[in-house]
């Protein structure tokens, strides 16, 4: 379980988060939806412990994020792998730090995502690199999975592959996954919980199925409505 209590964060004069309360329940796949610059990446970085809140607190399984880093598998929006690494080198590196590294899962995903161990990360296409990042994150049996914009700048076919790999590797109940994206239609049937964020404020958070039942709308439609109203309030 991940909990945000009255968390505020600013970078210089930019308010990234403005007193947000968020609850990511254990074992759910949460969609973190909002336009660019809404504060999605900041939420991810706070959970990873590479940002600190100015006010409020962030708890990962009851403790400060920095102390729980071994539980979290983080896929940042930027390319965070050494460009000279071969996939095999990157995998060996990761496996040294995380006891939850699952070698057989790694091998399985490698062929599922049609990647080769000898590929050099700096020399492959953007889509392949996105899959490589995903491979390294999903090869761990980490209790918390943070995927920051896993679909950005990737062609439709690869997006589908990534979505499939996510379902393939997901372990019900055990894993809590947070996917941030501004492209909701990719994950419409993938998430069971949604958090809509805009300009550092939470506009809506609820169970995805409850929302559909209550509003007879798809998440995409709900987002359009929520953000239209949200902007009007400002």
């Amino acid at each position: 379980m991940i909990e945000f209590r009255q968390v505020s964060k600013r970078f210089g004069s930019v308010v990234a988060l403005d007193g947000v309360d968020i609850h990511f329940p254990q074992g759910s796949i949460c969609g973190l939806f909002g336009p660019n610059g809404a504060g999605k990446s900041t939420i991810m970085k706070l959970i990873t412990g590479i940002n600190y809140p100015d006010q409020g607190e962030v708890m990962v399984r009851g403790a400060a994020p920095k102390a729980q880093r071994q539980l979290v598998a983080y896929l940042p929006e930027v390319d965070h792998l050494y460009p000279w690494w071969k996939l095999a080198q990157a995998a060996r590196f990761m496996s040294a730090f995380y006891p939850d590294w699952d070698e057989s899962r790694y091998k399985g995903l490698l062929s599922f995502l049609q990647l080769d161990e000898q590929m050099v990360i700096g020399k492959i296409s953007k889509g392949q690199r996105a899959k490589a990042k995903l491979l390294l994150v999903l090869s761990r049996r980490a209790p918390y999975l943070l995927l920051d914009e896993p679909f950005s700048g990737i062609d439709l076919l690869t997006r589908e592959e990534i979505a499939n790999a996510l379902i393939e590797g997901y372990r019900e109940g055990e894993q809590t996954m947070i996917i941030s994206t501004h492209e909701i239609d990719e994950v419409e049937s993938l998430v069971d919980r949604v958090v809509f964020i805009e300009q550092g404020r939470i506009q809506l958070q609820d169970d995805a199925e409850q929302l559909r039942l209550k509003r007879n709308q798809s998440l995409v439609e709900i987002m359009k409505e929520v953000f239209r109203n949200g902007s009007q309030q400002v």
Binding site: G27, A163, I167, Y170, E172, S189, L190
Partner: peptide, 16 residues
Amino acid sequence: QREYAQMVKVNPNTVQ
């Protein structure tokens, strides 16, 4: 449940 989730590409929790 797992097979079905993969087949229809839906959140395994929803299938459950």
